[in-house]
Design a protein around this nucleic acid. Structure first.
Length: 152
DNA sequence: GCCAACGTTGGC
DNA sequence: GCCAACGTTGGC
């Protein structure tokens, strides 16, 4: 899951313990949360933009609640308000995630790009912008190995 | 700040 | 249903 650290960082998640991943307004990302993310699934937490250490994976979270309606779509004054959403058809959904671990150092995107073992990882595909993306078990493990290696 | 990639909107 | 225009994302 991607987040701009200025809006919500791994440190914010560590402080809060858990959070509802509200505000996703992209159907593909919504579908991934709704259909693919199960309670207990592990999540790579990614900082986009200009965080400390540049864009990269900063830690691990875990799905603490499966997809449920994102009520911010119904709130007129919310940045995430969507006039098409109704109580019966909320349209937008979110999962809750809980903090698991913050890496000692960011695993930079530039490092991920050079890893043969991460070939085919959606995050590394040209032009990808999805804020929620699937990660294979093998890719997940490899990113964790890189994180451990970097704290070396 | 630039720009490529991509999603959405709306006219036709 | 097509597609141009526009807005957003996000790396560089």
């Amino acid at each position: 899951m991607k987040s701009e650290p200025e809006s919500y960082s791994i440190d914010d998640l560590a402080r809060d313990g858990s959070t509802s991943w509200d505000g996703v307004r992209n159907y593909q990302a919504r579908n991934l949360m709704r259909d693919e993310m199960k309670l207990g699934d592990q999540v790579l937490f990614y900082h986009s933009g200009k965080g400390a250490g540049g864009p990269g994976v900063t830690g691990i979270a875990r799905v603490s609640a499966a997809a449920h309606a994102d009520a911010t779509a119904l709130e007129k004054h919310s940045d995430y308000y969507d006039a098409k959403a109704t109580r019966d058809e909320p349209i937008w959904m979110m999962v809750d995630i809980a903090f698991v671990e913050k890496f000692d150092a960011v695993v930079p995107l530039s490092v991920l790009r050079n890893e043969k073992q991460l070939e085919g990882m959606p995050l590394l595909q040209r032009g990808q912008r999805l804020s929620v993306q699937p990660v294979s078990a093998a890719h997940f493990k490899h990113v964790c190995r890189l994180a451990k290696k970097m704290q070396g």
